[in-house]
Amino acid sequence: MKLILTTEVSGLGSPGDIVEVKDGYGRNYLIPRGFAIRWTRGGEKQIASIRKARDAREIRDLGTAKEVAGQLGALKVKLKTRAGESGRLFGSITTGDIAEAVKAAGGPQLDRRRIEITNAIKSLGSHRVSVKLHPEVSAALDVEVVSA
């Protein structure tokens, strides 16, 4: 099955890429979740707009990505949220919350889809999150979760 990706899918491609996947994977996972659309000749025209939007969000070159990684490494990010007496959060911290906290702390504007949380953040304390800035550059970001 030939598909056009609309969002980044790990191990498969970036928005605007045309990929060939097994029928079940495309029909049961990618298309229902909005990660891809079926490839058609008319869909080819949409690729240009998808790639244009991706380029606007993407960090242009390797040098800029390394500079942003340096900024993120030196940044102290604190997130205030409600928590119980045992230090367990009511809910969890999302990538959108982290992107807003980075901007509030004076850091660069980050796309929430580039932030990767390996283990769900559901407790107070310090947590490490990775940010994929460029295909060759990833930055580690320390997030301090404190009770509000």
Rank of each mutant, 00 (worst) to 15 (best):
M1E: 03
M1N: 04
M1W: 00
K2F: 01
L3D: 03
L3I: 04
L5P: 02
T7H: 15
V9K: 12
S10A: 11
S10M: 05
G11L: 05
G16T: 03
G16N: 05
E20V: 15
E20T: 10
V21H: 04
K22H: 08
D23K: 15
D23E: 14
G24F: 00
G24I: 10
Y25R: 09
G26L: 08
N28V: 02
Y29D: 01
L30M: 04
I31D: 11
I31Q: 11
G34H: 10
A36Q: 04
I37V: 15
I37M: 15
R38P: 06
T40P: 01
G42H: 04
G42S: 08
G42A: 05
G42N: 07
Q46V: 06
I47D: 10
I47A: 11
I47W: 06
S49V: 04
S49N: 10
S49R: 09
R57Y: 02
R57L: 08
E58H: 14
E58A: 14
R60M: 01
L62I: 11
T64S: 13
A65S: 12
V68T: 15
V68P: 13
A69V: 05
A69K: 13
G70A: 07
L72C: 11
G73L: 02
G73Y: 00
G73A: 14
G73H: 09
L75F: 05
L75V: 03
V77A: 08
T81A: 10
E85P: 14
S86D: 07
S86V: 01
S86M: 01
S86T: 05
G87H: 00
G91Y: 08
S92A: 07
I93L: 02
T94S: 15
T94A: 13
D97C: 03
D97F: 06
I98G: 15
A99V: 06
A99P: 06
A99K: 07
E100V: 12
E100S: 13
A101V: 07
A101Q: 05
A104K: 14
A104H: 07
A105Q: 06
G106D: 11
G107H: 08
G107A: 13
P108H: 13
D111N: 15
R112G: 11
T118L: 08
T118C: 08
N119E: 13
A120P: 13
I121K: 08
I121P: 07
I121A: 03
S123R: 13
S123I: 03
L124R: 09
G125H: 00
S126H: 14
S126T: 15
H127K: 09
R128V: 07
V129F: 04
V129W: 06
V129G: 08
S130T: 12
S130P: 02
V131H: 10
K132Y: 07
L133H: 11
P135R: 09
E136C: 03
E136H: 09
V137G: 05
A139L: 03
A139K: 00
L141F: 01
D142Q: 12
D142N: 12
D142T: 14
V145I: 10
V146F: 06
V146S: 06
V146G: 01
A148E: 15
